[in-house]
């Protein structure tokens, strides 16, 4: 983002400028900044309340199932790898392989959501959800811990769904041949977004599951 970005050299009369991959990438990175800040507000709340209710957060963390969390971490990190491989294969002219990797990524995303729903379901069964009588009988720290847990993993799950939709569109467009090898920006930016989803989870996982 230096001030020396190349200015557009030739403007056609009916479009904004020639194809310039730097433009889309800059826009995507700016958007990713805003996503980080969106979650930043929640991480700030987490930091304050964990500082204030350190022991309760520790105790509440013990109520989460680390197996679910670890499985989901592995699933998401794997999917980040396969999305990179998809871009790599696409850019060296192997669209079928790219599509297969994308499909695998999508399946990972789906697996993540399924595991997450089992995990949430278990919490609901144990009465650990906002306003549940059982949770309300616990201390402030536990209430806030689970409030934040559901809000942050919920918002993250919405991002997983959005990321999957973008990658699904890329998968279809490669199949139809409307996404061209010379203009891979859509796929690249979709991949960037998927990495963002992955990175946020990598912060969420230790903060909720591994408090010691």
């Amino acid at each position: 983002m230096s001030g020396t970005s190349a200015p557009a050299t030739a403007h056609g009369p009916h479009h904004a400028g020639p194809y310039n991959p730097a433009k889309g990438r800059l826009g995507m990175w700016l958007f990713i900044c805003t996503e980080v800040l969106l979650f930043g507000g929640l991480f700030l709340l987490y930091a304050v309340y964990r500082y204030r209710y350190a022991e309760a957060f520790h105790a509440a963390s013990g109520l989460l199932d680390r197996l679910f969390g670890t499985a989901n971490t592995i699933v998401l990190i794997t999917s980040s790898l396969t999305v990179v491989l998809a871009i790599f294969e696409f850019e060296r002219g192997k669209p079928t392989r790219a599509r297969n990797y994308l499909l695998f990524t999508l399946l990972c995303g789906l697996a993540f959501l399924v595991i997450k729903s089992f995990e949430w379901g278990a919490k609901f069964e144990h009465g650990l959800y906002p306003n549940a009588p059982h949770l309300m009988s616990m201390g402030f720290g536990e209430i806030l811990y689970f409030g934040l847990y559901f809000t942050m993993t919920g918002l993250h799950a919405i991002h997983v769904i959005v990321g999957m939709s973008v990658l699904f569109v890329a998968w279809r467009r490669i199949g139809k041949g409307t996404l061209m090898r010379t203009r891979p920006a859509f796929l690249e930016n979709g991949g960037l977004f998927w990495h963002l989803v992955d990175v946020i989870w990598i912060f969420l996982f230790p903060l909720f599951y591994l408090i010691s």
Binding site: P7, N20, A22, K23, L26
Partner: peptide, 8 residues
Amino acid sequence: VSTVHTLR
């Protein structure tokens, strides 16, 4: 921001 950086 993108316009100012890329379309001057």
